[in-house]
């Protein structure tokens, strides 16, 4: 694999507005139960001061996708650019991928009885456009990047944040710019 597309999430700039989540829903008009992308607020106890920090997580298009490994019908494929695509037509709804993914991203849609997930808007990416979540991020906190050693070598780029499962399970294609905390002159 020479390429691996993935996300760079800036937790300093992410204000937790859920714009990325809703952009995805707006484009695909997914069922209410489906949250292919989801914004989580990091537990405050992870930081020395009260915090308001968020992570936006869609499919991480992992280098070692557990979903793809366990799928009995071969519904998952990993493209040369690293995007992990789920073929809804092949899926038989066994939900094993749902059990296998630590990020909860493949989701069973009980209306059509199959699993669905984020395919990184590959049709848009193929046209040179950004995925809907990235394109919609008002604060500029979510980017589509090549995950490689030169990205990992940059200072401030982290492989995980508090509350996320260990990256060793699937080797996810997401990196973070960690939150910073300012001074707080509080009354408490």
């Amino acid at each position: 694999m020479n390429k691996q597309l993935g996300f760079l999430h800036n937790s300093e700039k992410c204000v937790g507005c859920r714009g990325c989540e809703m952009a995805c829903k707006n484009l695909y008009q997914t069922d209410i139960s489906q949250r292919w992308r989801q914004v989580f607020q990091i537990d405050e106890n992870a930081y020395p001061l009260p915090s308001r920090m968020f992570i936006s997580i869609g499919c991480n298009h992992c280098s070692e996708p557990q979903c793809m490994k366990v799928c009995p019908v071969g519904a998952y494929t990993k493209r040369d650019d690293g995007i992990v695509i789920h073929d809804d037509n092949r899926c038989i709804g066994c939900r094993l991928c749902v059990m296998a993914c630590p990020y909860g991203r493949p989701q069973f849609n009980s209306v059509i009885n199959i699993v669905q997930k984020c395919n990184l808007c590959y049709q848009r990416v193929d046209k040179g456009e950004k995925p809907a979540c990235v394109a919609s991020c008002v604060a500029g906190a979510l980017e589509l990047v090549q995950i490689n050693s030169s990205l990992d070598a940059k200072t401030g780029v982290l492989k995980t944040l508090p509350g996320l499962p260990s990256p060793s399970i699937t080797n996810p294609s997401i990196r973070f710019v960690g939150p910073k905390q300012g001074k707080q002159v509080r009354r408490d």
Partner: peptide
């Protein structure tokens, strides 16, 4: 401490 305050250099309560 609003979301904005949490991202500022300094928060004055």
């Amino acid at each position: 401490l609003s979301d904005t305050a949490a991202r500022s250099h300094r928060f004055i309560q």
